[in-house]
Amino acid sequence: MFYLALTICAVIFVYPFYWMVIASIAPENEIGSLTIMPTSLTLSSYAQMVDKIPIGGAFINSLIVASSITIGVLIFGSMIGYALSKLVFKGRDLIFYIIIFTMTLPFQITLIPQYIIMVKFGWIDTYWALIVPYLINALSIIMFRQYFKSIPDSLIDAARLDGCNELQIIFRILWPNSMPAIITIGIITFMASWNEVLWPLIVIRDESLMTMPQLVTLFAVGGRAESQLGVKLASAVMLALPIVLAYLFFQKYFIQSMASTGIKE
């Protein structure tokens, strides 16, 4: 009974993806009636897509942007999280409350002014606009702070006696002892940056600088797909593929990471 219900639901969640993949490798005229398997398989939709949009370049852009953001969030997040959890200084609580406050602030209020800042900085159509605003992330600071609190002070004191400076303490002592936090923050940050689409649509107009979600979006709504379903779906498959592959290998971490952020919010 339970298995029947679960299997029906699992089909509802997985079948559309299956359909998307086979539709992208089916002949264009068969997509409209496709259910399980086309009569023949072809890569022509992919060939046409590569012809029409710079999908390879967009892949590289997405990789550069998402990796830079993830590395930045991990470095800055752990530095700030360390100061807030292990060091005593004036204004520490104030900064902590400000961080909590910014987490509850809806992005709708800052969207327009942030765009104007990008214009004034001359950052429109540059990587800077895609990366810099995301380098600091309130949630990741809070998560690092929380995790570092569970690491005993004696470990840090011992390292200090051995002559470690504060940066060495963070990256040589705390990091190896905080792998669960680093994996969680790394996964959610990379995934969120890889999938981000509103901000790139606003600050990037030059096609050679577009990230994958933006390029695929504009391809889907613009006229260039010439109402061919196959090429649209092929571009969607390309966009989904890297994250789905990562998910297949690290499924447990993905689910734990997402669940922990949901709970903290």
């Binding site: 679960l6 639901c9 699992a10 969640f13 997985v14 559309p16 993806f17 359909w19 998307m20 539709a23 997509i31 995934m191 890889w194 999938n195 689409v197 979600p213 695929v216 979006t217 889907a220 379903l229 649209k232 779906l233 571009s235 969607a236 498959v237 966009l239 989904a240 994250i243 789905v244 998910y247 499924q251 993905f254 689910i255 997402m258």
Partner: peptide, 26 residues
């Protein structure tokens, strides 16, 4: 249980752009 959970979670990790293009066809 893990397999089913993994299946239900699949759309969560995929970009909204992918899901939207797909459902537009559906």
């Amino acid at each position: 249980r893990g397999v089913f959970r993994g299946a239900f979670f699949l759309p969560v990790i995929v970009s909204g752009v992918v899901v939207t293009i797909l459902w537009q066809q559906l």
